[in-house]
């Protein structure tokens, strides 16, 4: 990889992270404000947003998915990691290749079938929040799963590279 491409990669990486953080922060803050605004409006002004409940719940979905994308960046998903510390370094790399490849495949499938779900909502003109197209809110599912898949594809690639290096050093041709 050339230096320029590497720099571009780094920059994209940083921009991606910034965007993730921004989405998470905006969503969480908006959630707190909207929920408390509802309480204030009801008790002080005898009014309220009719759609607040539904919007708040949809925000949970968005937070969940963007949180999951952010968790993938650092490979910080909840897992039962009991066996790997008994493995030799090479075997551990083999196991990492398998685990990451598996996760990539699962997320690709999730992204694909979420996309079909969103497509059907678009096709049938499903509505949410009092008449807005449902796919606006659902589109986050395929996007997030695709991003997670991409992340684990990178992990898989790096595990394969490291495994290759290791084997090469052990059996110099």
């Amino acid at each position: 990889m050339s230096d320029a491409a590497g720099r571009l990669g780094d920059r994209l990486e940083r921009a991606g992270r910034l965007l993730e953080d921004l989405v998470l922060i905006v969503l969480l803050s908006a959630m707190m404000l909207l929920a408390t605004a509802q309480i204030l409006l009801r008790n002080v002004f005898d009014s309220g947003f009719i759609w607040a409940d539904e919007v708040l719940k949809l925000m949970v979905l968005w937070l969940a998915l963007f949180g999951a994308v952010a968790a993938s960046r650092a490979d910080k998903h909840i897992s039962i990691d009991v066996v790997s510390r008994f493995l030799s370094p090479s075997l551990r790399l083999v196991s990492q290749c398998m685990v990451n490849a598996f996760t990539t495949v699962v997320c690709v499938l999730l992204a694909w079938h979420s996309a079909r779900f969103v497509y059907s909502a678009w096709e049938f003109g499903d509505e949410l929040v009092g008449g807005l197209p449902a796919w606006w809110f659902q589109i986050v599912m395929p996007i997030a799963f695709a991003l997670i898949a991409w992340r684990y594809l990178l992990f898989t690639g790096s595990a394969v590279l490291r495994l290759g290096n290791r084997l090469r050093h052990r059996n110099p041709a």
Binding site: L28, M31, M32, A35, D53, L56, K57, L58, V60, L61, W62, L63, A64, L109, L110, H113, S114, R116, F117, V118, S120, F137, Q138, M141
Partner: peptide
């Protein structure tokens, strides 16, 4: 149809008690 997984997953955005979790 496997998009049933997506239909179920979307419930994360419609279940009423989950709002408490992030907050």
């Amino acid at each position: 149809d496997l998009s049933a997984v997506a239909i179920e997953f979307f419930s994360v955005g419609t279940m009423p008690f989950l709002l408490a979790i992030p907050l």
